[in-house]
């Protein structure tokens, strides 16, 4: 049975789209047929980060309005044959999404895919609600700062009350905490919230920590998700997250300050 995973946060700019791209790519690299959907209608970004913006002909809203078939709109990823992107529309607003339309698209995708990753827009308005409504699991992307944690808390509350699973009264959406842009050094000095602070407040299981890294920016700009550059710490962090999601036990990395020797500091790890 196909699983629907929403990547959400409440707050903007914390790394939802980056996480969606890397997580979906990671699932595909592990051999699962994966579709990643951009719910940020009007401000689409996922296609840029996935490097397929030039190939966008039809989009999510076209499919919802029966102007195109799902097959026409899905864009096959260049790197992974198992990965498909359903881009958002740039010319519509978020009201173009509605429950019946989104449900039809997701049900159709479920027949053909193992995992459907929904990239939520920021905020708690319609686009975000639609992205989370059909979710079976949720990745809550959080930065180590108080406003992001607060917004994640809010989103968790909404997820527990307003998702389809909540409305039907069946098993709740499985929640995973994913901390991005983490700097162990700054957490140590108290500039940032630490992993344990965030876990204590949000009170949901941690699936992984992605360190703050320049590799992300480079990857975004080149349109190739960072997870493809396996020598970078970000790629390793996302690979670990995908493995944990798939049930493998992987020790937590990138949460403690690297204290490597002089040579390592001189030549650097990654």
């Amino acid at each position: 049975m196909a699983k629907v995973i929403v990547v959400t946060s409440g707050k903007g700019g914390v790394g939802k789209t980056t996480t969606s791209a890397n997580f979906a790519t990671g699932l595909a690299l592990n051999g699962h047929r994966t579709a990643v959907l951009d719910f940020d209608v009007g401000l689409r970004n996922l296609d840029l980060i996935m490097g397929c913006e030039r190939r966008v002909v039809y989009d999510f809203v076209n499919v919802i309005n029966h102007e195109a078939t799902l097959k026409q709109a899905l864009i096959k990823d260049k790197q992974c044959p198992n990965l498909f992107v359903l881009p958002a529309s740039q010319t519509r607003d978020k009201d173009a999404l509605h429950v019946e339309g989104v449900e039809r698209v997701i049900e159709e995708l479920k027949k053909d895919f193992d995992y459907i990753v929904c990239d939520s827009p920021a905020g708690i308005e319609k686009g975000a609600m639609m992205a989370m409504y059909f979710a079976d699991e949720a990745l809550i992307v959080t930065n180590p700062e108080i406003s992001s944690v607060r917004d994640s808390d809010r989103i968790l509350g909404i997820l527990a009350a307003k998702s389809k699973r909540a409305e039907m009264g069946i098993e709740p959406v499985k929640e995973h905490l994913l901390i991005t842009r983490y700097s162990p050094k700054r957490a140590e000095t108290g500039e940032m919230l630490s992993v344990s602070d965030i876990r204590e407040i949000l009170n949901i299981p941690l699936i992984g920590v992605v360190p703050e890294s320049e590799a992300i920016l480079q990857a975004s700009n080149s349109g190739i998700p960072a997870i493809h550059h396996q020598d970078s710490d970000v790629a390793q962090a996302y690979s670990d997250i995908v493995k944990r999601f798939l049930g493998e036990e992987v020790p937590l990395r990138f949460v403690n300050r690297q204290k490597g020797g002089f040579l390592k500091r001189l030549f650097g790890g990654a």
């Binding site: 607060r150 808390d153 509350g157 009350a161 407040i201 009170n203």
Partner: peptide
């Protein structure tokens, strides 16, 4: 969680999980 409100009308309230800021 933040933004949620629980009201125990005419009775006591017992909460077994954190009540978060907000």
């Amino acid at each position: 969680r933040t933004g949620q409100q629980i009201y125990a009308q005419d009775c006591d309230l017992i909460v077994l999980a954190p009540v978060n800021a907000g």
